[in-house]
Design a protein around this nucleic acid. Structure first.
Length: 510
RNA sequence: GAGGGUGUAGCUCAGCCGGUAGAGCAACGGCCUUUUAAGCCGUGGGUCCAGGGUUCGAUUCCCUGCACCCUCACCA
């Protein structure tokens, strides 16, 4: 944090001098509380019709523009509702107030009190009578300049460098209003989802993030160490196995919205920590979950956008239920012309080769099918679509299909070629589960680091009797990407994971 | 992990067939009492990502490293 100060010492020093001047005038440049009567947006919507007495207001915010001219000056104050212009005139305030006004910089946080009027150019403005400095800014903000012309917003010198924006999100939020909008929507999406689930009577719970054994998904975990217990702990990769234990315990509908951690690659769809919602409902199955997903996402979309058809990229997404439904093998057949259900390893290998698919880990039927599916089917699943009935090998926690062999009762929802949720009729047969875990153990022995580990406690819980249930997981970050038209997961995570900055000049100095 | 791209003033960028760099905005000084990407005049500001090499001389060419971006692979 200190390391780059010398690079802009000069800019900082001039601000420090202004700060000292303020102090010598008896002004504390770092105020305590400030009473506001209005936010910026409230003032802009005041009734300023003729004949009315000019309303008195107080407001506070950060100075985002500053135009001083001799004996008067204008500035814009930004708070979380928007911007309001303020005006100070030498002969309308006392000398000290005007002197303080002259010491202000872009980025300073101040509170003002005064009357509201409209300027000749028609902008609603506070004519200030008093001014309180709440925080002097010492570093220059990369403030964006914008001009409205023919209803088009022209932006000059936008703070656009993605790296700086992600590393200093607080600056990004201040100067790029669209960014704040994305995170407001994110918050709305999550609260809308909670409201929906709460409305159904499900219980929100919290299960361990630090786990002695991880499970519930295929992934490499993060590992940590507890000193007092002197044991290895893992950061969870999924909530699943703990939530299902709670259904064994007698809760009939539980969900959790929280972070999972996976020690894997990073790209525009993956951040090492990400937010999941998982829901388990006793006595239900995957058909129930499919209906719930359609209904819940429509409800969220309506809450956030007021519409079920929303723009995405050059296209749009239509969340109107019901979604298209198609089985896994039907989907492959539709997009490759090949019926691969029941094919053995060699046949599948040939089929993959025919489609030019070459992946690293194609040891099993499941892995090959998965490769074909990702490459040939997923990119076509643009509008909301459910893919149902997955091969059993790639779904070790899902119940075998009640009528079809070789597949499980599982579906994934796809939107814009991206998986948005994953759900099953959960496996509640402890003997079948043990067998599936053992198959995973074999894969692990063959070098698959992401295969599941056997969880004896979980198997034990199942042996007490686990009701049948429907289970669902929704990746919140990806849902937010869709609902905010964002191209990268980093655009919907406030502080995405970044490599630390290395500053060689700093390490020499300190 | 592979390939490509980018890294120059606080911000956005230009430039350099190799001779230690420029614009706009921001900053500082002056003029300006309803302005609005304010204006006009003037001034200052850069280990040109880091380290090494070639060279009389490197920000520019070469190598290595670092960070970020894009594509692919891996991964939900």
């Amino acid at each position: 944090m200190e390391e780059r100060l010398d690079l802009f010492d000069e800019l900082r020093n001039t601000r420090l001098e202004k700060l000292k001047k303020m102090e010598s005038m008896g002004v504390n440049p770092y105020g305590c509380r400030f009473d506001r009567t209005h936010k910026a947006a409230d003032i802009l919507s005041l009734d300023l019709s003729e004949g009315e007495e000019k309303p008195r207001v107080s407001a506070a915010g950060r100075i985002m523009s500053l135009r001083r001219m001799g004996g008067a000056g204008f500035a814009h104050l930004q708070d979380d509702s928007g911007r309001i212009q303020i005006y100070s005139r030498k002969d309308q305030v006392d000398e000290k107030t005007f002197d303080i006004f002259k010491l202000l910089d872009l980025g300073d946080i101040i509170g003002v009190e005064g009357t509201v009027f409209t300027t000749r150019t028609g902008e609603i403005t506070i004519s200030i009578e008093s001014l309180t400095v709440l925080a002097k800014s010492l570093r220059p903000l990369p403030i964006v300049k914008e001009k409205i012309q023919d209803d088009e917003k022209i932006i000059y010198d936008q703070f656009a460098d993605k790296e700086s924006r992600y590393r200093k999100r607080y600056v990004d939020l201040l100067v790029n209003p669209d960014v704040m909008e994305v995170f407001r929507k994110r918050s709305k999406i999550v609260s809308s989802m909670r409201r929906y689930l709460e409305g159904k009577g499900y219980l929100e719970v919290e299960t361990p993030i630090l786990q002695p054994l991880y499970g519930g998904a295929f992934a490499r975990p993060f590992t940590t160490h507890h000193h007092r217990l002197d044991m290895t702990l893992y950061l969870r990769i999924a909530d699943e196995l703990y939530l299902k234990r709670l259904i064994v315990g007698g809760f009939e509908g539980v969900y959790e919205i929280s972070k999972d951690f996976r020690n894997e690659g990073m790209d525009r769809d993956h951040n090492p920590e990400f937010t999941m919602m998982e829901l388990y409902v006793a006595f239900e199955d995957y058909h129930f979950m499919m209906n719930l997903v359609e209904d819940m996402l429509a409800s969220i979309c309506r809450d956030v956008h007021g519409d079920l058809r929303i723009p995405y990229g050059n296209s749009h997404i239509d969340f109107t239920p019901p979604w298209k439904r198609l089985s896994y093998f039907e989907a492959i057949k539709k997009h490759t012309g090949m019926d691969l259900s029941g094919d053995d390893l060699n046949t599948l290998k040939k089929a993959a080769a025919e489609k030019g698919i070459q992946k690293e880990k194609m040891f099993t039927e499941g892995a090959i099918l998965d490769a074909i599916f990702s490459q040939c089917v997923e990119p076509h699943l643009l509008q909301p679509t459910f893919i149902m009935d997955y091969p059993v090998e790639i779904s070790p926690l899902a119940r075998k299909h009640r009528n079809l062999s070789g597949v499980v009762e599982r579906f994934e929802g796809y939107i814009m070629g991206r998986e948005i949720c994953n759900a099953f009729s959960e496996l509640n047969d402890p003997l079948d589960q043990r067998e599936r875990f053992e198959n995973q153990a074999k894969l692990r022995d063959r070098g698959d680091e992401e295969a599941m580990v056997i969880d004896e406690d979980y198997l034990g819980a199942m042996e007490y009797g686990m009701p049948p249930m429907g289970g669902l997981g929704i990746g919140i970050d990806r849902l937010v990407m869709l609902l905010t038209d964002s191209a990268s997961i980093r655009d919907v995570i406030l502080f995405p994971q970044m490599r630390p900055e290395i500053d060689s000049s700093a390490s020499e100095k300190h």
